[in-house]
Write a protein that binds this DNA or RNA. Structure first.
Length: 282
DNA sequence: CATAGATCCTGTATGC
DNA sequence: TGCATACAGGATCTAT
């Protein structure tokens, strides 16, 4: 599942391979991929040059040379952005193809479950001298963003009456965290996902954030190694970071801290893995 | 308004 | 063997 580290790996790859290139053609092979786009993606992109590749949380966008809009991408659950030679056979779940005016590789969007999407959207100021697509202005900065406001996050978290895991997954509070890194961060912080946010003091929140940053940084560091082919497997099965997981997917395995068997419970329509002994609910 | 739950989607794994 | 069901979950929409 692509969360912040995986999306950042993709961003770095795209930045190197598509920045400065000009769209020659766009082929949408599955209507659902552009369900949030009004009009023709092709018409809005042909002739536009990509200025750079940016990211906030799990969203990617490529500002265009018209200087007022960007191609926005979200990988959803299973999306991949791949650089491929035009002679490479189409992938089974190829949803969109972007070709360029130069002879370099084409860009493909492959997405088995079609939770991902593409759209061209207007850019607005981000309040700190930068720009971001208006459509994602509700997405909070992520914990690796230098402009992430830790104190403001603490206050918003404390004011909220909900469970801490739900809050971590709320992209309008803090972005980039998905089910895997939420479980890992909570395990490291010895917090149960159902712990109420109102019970956490500032120190606890800071410790939790420190673990969020650490686990994401470690995953990002390892993700860099599989990057040469410009292929990042984001279907949750491959996993260069799998060996480092202490909670996610570890149901029935002994907790690497105390030996108690990791348990799993359904929560928010998804699985939560945790150590029933280490992780406190209050 | 804030929070909780339902929903979309398809390949893989499991159960009978 | 074959069919049916459960499961994976990010973001958004709907309900309370």
């Amino acid at each position: 599942m692509p969360e912040l580290p995986e999306v950042e790996v993709v961003r770095r790859g795209l930045d190197r391979w598509v920045t400065g290139r000009i769209f020659a053609d766009v082929e949408v092979l599955h209507a659902r991929v552009v369900r949030r786009h009004e009009g023709s993606l092709r018409d809005d992109l042909i002739g536009e040059q990509i200025r750079c590749v940016s990211r906030r949380g799990k969203y990617l966008w490529m500002p265009l040379s018209n200087s007022c809009s960007a191609l926005v991408a979200h990988l959803g659950m299973s999306g991949q952005l791949l650089m491929q030679s035009d002679s490479t056979p189409d992938e089974a779940h190829l949803r969109a193809r972007f070709t360029f005016t130069d002879p370099g590789p084409e860009l493909r969007f492959v997405d088995q479950r079609t939770f991902g999407g593409l759209m061209v959207a207007p850019l607005v100021g981000d309040g700190a001298g930068g720009q971001l697509p208006a459509i994602i202005s509700h997405i909070a900065r992520d914990p690796l963003d230098p402009a992430f406001d830790e104190v403001a996050f603490e206050m918003r978290l404390h004011a909220r009456d909900t469970e801490i895991k739900r809050a971590l997954l709320d992209q309008s509070l803090v972005s980039g965290i998905g089910n895997i890194y939420a479980d890992e961060s909570l395990w490291r912080a010895r917090l149960h996902g159902r712990c109420r946010t109102g019970l956490l003091d500032g120190a606890s929140v800071r410790v939790l954030l420190r673990h969020v940053r650490a686990v994401m940084s470690e995953a990002l560091h390892q993700g860099g190694t599989s990057f040469d082919s410009l292929y990042v497997n984001v279907n949750g099965e491959s996993g260069y970071f799998d060996r480092s997981l202490d909670a996610y997917g570890q149901e029935g395995e002994p907790c690497s801290r105390c030996g108690t068997l990791i348990e799993r419970e359904r929560f928010m329509n998804r699985s939560s893995a945790f150590c029933p002994r280490c992780q406190s609910i209050s």
